[in-house]
Amino acid sequence: MSRALDTRTAPPTPVTLEDAQSVGALLASSRSAETRRSYASAMRTFTAWCRVWGYPSIPTGPEVVASYIAHRAELVAHSTISRDVAAISAAHLDKGLGDPTAHHGVRQALRSAGRALGTSPSRRATPLTTVLMRQAIDAMDDLETATGKRDRAILLLGLAAALRRRELAALTTNDIARQGAGLLLQIRRSKTDQTGRGDLIGIPLGAHSETCPVLALEAWFEASGRKLGVGSPLFSRIYNHSRIGDTALSDRSIARIIQARAAAANINEKDYAHIAGVAQTWVSGHSLRAGHATSAAAAGVDSMTISRTTRHRRLDSLARYVRPASALEDSTAGKIGL
Rank of each mutant, 00 (worst) to 15 (best):
R178F: 05
V214K: 04
T211V: 15
A177Q: 15
R226Q: 12
I203D: 12
I201P: 06
L215C: 00
D193P: 12
R197Y: 05
S232H: 08
L228A: 13
L217E: 02
V214A: 03
S224T: 10
L215S: 14
V230F: 08
G202S: 15
R226I: 01
L234I: 05
T195S: 13
E222H: 13
T195M: 13
G202M: 06
A219I: 02
P213F: 01
T211H: 13
R197A: 13
G225Q: 05
F235P: 07
L215R: 15
L183F: 02
A219N: 12
L215W: 00
E218P: 00
C212L: 07
E222P: 00
A219L: 03
P204W: 06
L215P: 00
G180T: 11
K227R: 14
L184Y: 01
S236D: 05
E210A: 14
P233H: 03
A207H: 12
G182L: 01
D193Q: 08
R197F: 05
L205A: 09
A223H: 07
T195N: 06
L183M: 10
G229T: 10
P204D: 10
G182F: 03
R189Q: 11
I176P: 01
A216P: 04
S236I: 02
W220K: 11
I176D: 08
S209A: 15
